[in-house]
């Protein structure tokens, strides 16, 4: 039973991490253009280095 003391906080933290990531993506306007993002991945333009 002692392992619950670790497992429950760990599972909550992981879930919280996911929630934080969702908040960040929402704030970062990552859901503005899903169609465009789906197409941009096909372009080879910035394959070698990230866009400055």
């Amino acid at each position: 039973m002692e392992m619950l003391a670790y497992l429950i906080p760990i599972s909550l933290c992981l879930g919280g991490l996911g929630l934080a990531a969702f908040f960040w993506s929402l704030k970062d306007r990552q859901y503005d253009d899903p169609k465009g993002d789906a197409q941009r991945i096909l372009s080879t333009e910035w394959d070698d280095q990230p866009k400055p």
Binding site: G15, A21, F22, D32, P34
Partner: peptide, 14 residues
């Protein structure tokens, strides 16, 4: 985390 609402909403371009 699997939230179905991940699809876009043009109005959230706040």
């Amino acid at each position: 985390m699997d939230v179905p609402a991940a699809s876009a909403c043009p109005a959230c371009l706040a």
